[in-house]
């Protein structure tokens, strides 16, 4: 279903990235290329390094060795989290993390694409345009009714959606989604898959997921991680037939 795209730019380029914690190698010379406009799913058993990979890309963890580039020549390993976020890389965490004491509306307001210099936030005004933008995102994630409630009192699924909404409103170039459907009902999972496919039309998305049905419904290129390195790459059917993959992951 993916029509061959024009020769794409590598948007995200990881080469030989190694991260070790107390002798345990979470990433072992991992190399990965994600192209502009691509939707990519990453699977792998627990401890394969999926979350650590995201930590490295978003600046939470510094690699011990290797290079991490965004577009051409932006070395992510030298920037901190907020600088990376301002390049247009957004992340959704495994556990939904919204700001519990802020309202749903305020959660989205903070995520608006905007100048994020702290000095500017002192004098920032909520223009009608921005208010409308927040309203439309609220509608899209189905939380229009809950705009004024503190995010802490949302249900688990609603928090996941709010978090996706927060990524949505920022117009990111690259989205990293860590288990976006964990803890969701089947119906919510379907809706999320649709939302992600919709989002993927105009941006690059990397999804880490355990749920095979969900991965299949995305129908995207799959990368299998194992022990901190790429084990196989290709369509879901292709990797599911790879004997090494079956051995370490699917064949358990």
């Amino acid at each position: 279903m993916n029509t061959p795209r024009l020769p794409a730019e590598p948007l995200l380029y990881l080469n030989g990235v190694t991260v070790s914690f107390d002798g345990f190698r979470a990433l072992n010379s991992l190399s990965l290329i994600v192209e502009e406009g691509e939707l990519r799913t990453i699977i792998g058993p627990n401890g394969a390094g999926k979350t650590t990979m995201m930590d490295v890309v978003t600046g939470k963890t510094r690699p011990d060795a290797g290079e991490v580039f965004f577009r051409r020549g932006t070395d992510l390993s030298r920037l901190d989290e907020s600088e990376i976020a301002n390049l247009g890389i957004g992340r959704k965490f495994q556990r939904p993390t919204v700001f519990e004491n802020l309202t749903v509306f305020e959660n989205l307001e903070l995520s608006l694409a905007d100048n994020r210099a702290i000095w500017r936030t002192l004098f920032a005004r909520l223009t009608p345009y921005r208010r409308d933008r927040i309203g439309s995102v609220l509608a899209r994630i189905g939380l229009s009714e809950q705009g004024g409630t503190p995010a802490g009192s949302l249900s688990h699924g609603q928090k996941q959606w709010l978090e996706i909404g927060m990524l949505l409103i920022h117009d990111r170039t690259l989205l990293l989604l860590d288990e976006p459907v964990a803890g969701m009902t089947d119906r919510e999972t379907e809706e999320t898959a649709e939302l992600i496919l919709d989002l993927a039309k105009d941006r690059t998305i990397v999804v880490v997921e355990h749920d095979m049905a969900f991965v299949r419904s995305l129908g995207a290129k799959v990368t299998v991680l194992h022990e901190g390195a790429v084990l196989a790459e290709g369509s879901l059917d292709h990797v599911q037939n790879d004997p090494r993959v079956i051995e370490v992951y699917l064949g358990r």
Binding site: F21, D22, F24, A26, T52, D55, K60, T61
Partner: peptide, 8 residues
Amino acid sequence: APKGRSAE
């Protein structure tokens, strides 16, 4: 210092 994911 402990190092690792738990620490982070």
